[in-house]
Design a protein around this nucleic acid. Structure first.
Lengths: 252, 252
DNA sequence: CCGTAGAATATGTCCGGACAAATAACTATG
DNA sequence: CATAGTTATTTGTCCGGACATATTCTACGG
């Protein structure tokens, strides 16, 4: 981050920034403590407030401190985390199914939630919740084998949403509306493997003993409430999940 | 992003920032074109250079422009990409095995690469490459079943690295040195499912027909050269891969 | 025609000052 | 003692100016 060119000294605000980062890493100011105020830094380093602010801004950008008007600058972390980022531009890319595929809902009803999903859904076991089952396949290829079977639970649907979801003619569009991209804030997903089993094998025209990639996705809104949980079961060789993580910094 | 409180006007620099963003989105300035210079913005909006810079800084932070001293501000994108980030603090967290597990190498040799891996490894089929096989299990629990079997190929090892890797007493430490965290820049991984098969089932003490989660990880250095490829095969129920994606912005 | 030196241009760094707004600490009041 | 209002503190916004440094353009000379 700080270039070490010989005979070319770093800008003053970077020097101050580095000193502050060092103070934090050395534990001179503990996590939770306040950093010196801007005016104190001006005094101590003999700099203008502008330069002090530039230094603090860098420290803030590193994620080490939190600044609040009227209050001050509080240390929130001792080390800047080495962060690997996965960039996902949109929902389709996240799901990795692309525009060429399509989810055909084949059943939609209010069903009691199974015991093993109750806690994840934030429901009591046996509680009834809108529940869809569909098959994802490639568009324009009705003959091809489906990619996966997807089971969808919508625990916090509104009355209107539920009505649309349970109407097979509208449920696909309704799904997209429920999963409003702009309100989405977090997606948690868990990938595991399992043998297909009889029921899924029938739907997918595959061997029941065959291995399957199971992806459990939970979509949360800005208040971290669960909007929707989708469990997709992909028979082996019909789907692979790829990610690319880039080290901290700009990515391509 | 821009708060819309009534009777509480936004700061001037934010207004200017929004105007600039709008200009870019409307196509008034195309991607590749130059944005007005700081001094031009001072004139046009009747603001100080400080305010102009603050506005431009915001636009830059959105990833819409690129600024270069002596040159100017060039538009690099028409829309701020809706980005979902996965934050991974360190290598162990990326691998999700944690400190409690350990990889025990059980074989290390120079082996010819299988045909189906040749292109991914950037080698000719049949070319010999350092090749390790190990079992990952929980520390302090020799009795417990291993989590996975891992197959590792190191196509671009130096002479010295290769020597250490192929020495079973040193290969574990050597692996960590080869996978130098600081030189790592990209990790590509692909998750898929497969049935275990005879060989892996024997090593893992599992049913050969049982499903397995297969994770193929490719580690690349700053020049995007492949450092190492690791293929881990996890019998079902011994491992799950979880990620949490957060929408653009600070994450917790 | 090409390359170089210098001029013009644009962003980066840094100083000074002033007021606004949010927070926290304090004080007066019931 | 609890609460409301006041004050002091601290960061946010915004202005002015000056010089540094990187880039680009231009004119000159070979």
């Amino acid at each position: 981050m700080a270039k070490a060119k010989v005979g070319k000294r770093a800008p003053r605000y970077l020097q101050v920034c580095n000193d502050l980062v060092a103070m934090i890493r050395n534990g001179d100011v503990a996590v939770g403590d306040m950093l010196p105020t801007e005016l104190e830094l001006c005094d101590r380093f003999e700099i203008s407030r502008h330069t002090a602010r530039e230094a603090l801004r860098r420290v803030e950008d590193m994620g080490l401190v939190e600044r609040k008007r009227g209050s001050g600058t509080r240390v929130t972390a001792r080390e800047a985390p080495v962060v690997y980022n996965q960039y996902v531009a949109n929902m389709d890319e996240l799901m990795q199914y692309g525009q060429a595929t399509r989810l055909a809902i084949c059943s939609a009803a209010r069903d009691p939630v199974p015991a093993h999903l109750a806690s994840a859904l934030g429901c009591k076991p046996g509680q009834s919740v809108p529940h869809l089952v569909g098959l994802r396949s490639y568009r324009d290829q009705d003959s091809a084998l489906p990619i996966c079977v997807t089971e969808i639970w919508v625990p916090n649907a509104s009355r209107a949403q539920e009505k649309d979801l349970l109407d097979l003619d509208q449920s696909e569009r309704a799904l997209y509306r429920v999963l409003d991209f702009s309100r989405l804030s977090r997606v948690r997903q868990t990938l595991s493997a399992d043998n297909l089993g009889r029921a899924a094998a029938d739907l997918l025209a595959a061997d029941p003993d065959s291995a399957a990639l199971v992806i459990n996705r939970r979509y949360h809104d800005l208040d971290d409430r669960l909007i929707l949980m989708a469990i997709s079961t992909h028979p082996k060789e019909r789907f692979r999940y790829s990610t690319e993580l880039s080290a901290h910094g700009k990515s391509g």
